[in-house]
Simulated scan of single mutants.
Amino acid sequence: MSERKPVVLVTAADLAPEALALLGGYEIVYAGKTPSDDDIVSLCGQHDPAAIIVRYGKVGAAAMAAAPSLRVISKHGSGTDTIDKTAAAARGIAVRAAAGANAAAVAEHALALMLACAKSVPLLDARMRAGHWDKAVHKSLELHGRTVGLVGLGAIGLRFARMADAMGMNVLGFDPYAKELPSFVQRADLDTLWKQADVISLHCPLTEENRNLLDAKTLARCKRGVIVVNTARGGLIDEAALLEAVRGGQVRAAGLDSFAVEPMLAGHPFQKESGFILSPHIGGVTSDAYVNMGLAAARNVRGVIEAR
Rank of each mutant, 00 (worst) to 15 (best):
residue 159 R to L: 14
residue 201 S to P: 13
residue 199 V to W: 12
residue 169 M to N: 03
residue 170 N to Q: 14
residue 157 G to W: 11
residue 194 W to Q: 11
residue 170 N to F: 00
residue 159 R to I: 05
residue 190 L to W: 10
residue 162 R to P: 00
residue 179 K to Q: 15
residue 182 P to W: 10
residue 157 G to P: 12
residue 156 I to Q: 08
residue 182 P to G: 07
residue 156 I to M: 11
residue 174 F to Q: 12
residue 194 W to G: 12
residue 181 L to V: 12
residue 158 L to E: 06
residue 186 Q to M: 11
residue 166 A to K: 04
residue 169 M to T: 09
residue 157 G to V: 03
residue 190 L to Q: 05
residue 172 L to W: 02
residue 186 Q to L: 09
residue 185 V to A: 05
residue 156 I to W: 05
residue 194 W to D: 11
residue 173 G to Q: 10
residue 154 G to Q: 04
residue 157 G to T: 10
residue 175 D to L: 01
residue 202 L to A: 13
residue 168 G to E: 12
residue 191 D to H: 12
residue 198 D to L: 09
residue 163 M to C: 00
residue 170 N to W: 00
residue 175 D to P: 12
residue 186 Q to P: 01
residue 160 F to D: 00
residue 175 D to H: 06
residue 201 S to T: 13
residue 176 P to Y: 01
residue 158 L to G: 09
residue 153 L to H: 07
residue 193 L to M: 07
residue 191 D to T: 02
residue 175 D to K: 07
residue 177 Y to T: 10
residue 152 G to L: 09
residue 201 S to Y: 02
residue 196 Q to N: 12
residue 201 S to M: 11
residue 199 V to H: 00
residue 165 D to W: 03
residue 197 A to W: 03
residue 174 F to P: 00
residue 193 L to C: 11
residue 202 L to D: 14
residue 199 V to E: 09
residue 161 A to I: 01
residue 155 A to G: 00
residue 181 L to M: 09
residue 192 T to W: 00
residue 177 Y to R: 08
residue 152 G to C: 08
residue 183 S to Q: 14
residue 170 N to K: 13
residue 193 L to T: 11
residue 173 G to F: 02
residue 167 M to I: 10
residue 167 M to T: 00
residue 153 L to I: 10
residue 198 D to W: 03
residue 195 K to P: 03
residue 153 L to Y: 08
residue 156 I to H: 02
residue 152 G to I: 01
residue 155 A to W: 07
residue 191 D to G: 05
residue 180 E to P: 03
residue 159 R to M: 15
residue 164 A to Y: 00
residue 183 S to N: 14
residue 199 V to Q: 08
residue 177 Y to A: 13
residue 174 F to S: 12
residue 182 P to K: 03
residue 164 A to Q: 00
residue 154 G to W: 07
residue 169 M to Y: 05
residue 167 M to S: 06
residue 151 V to E: 09
residue 167 M to Q: 04
residue 156 I to C: 08
residue 197 A to D: 02
residue 179 K to F: 01
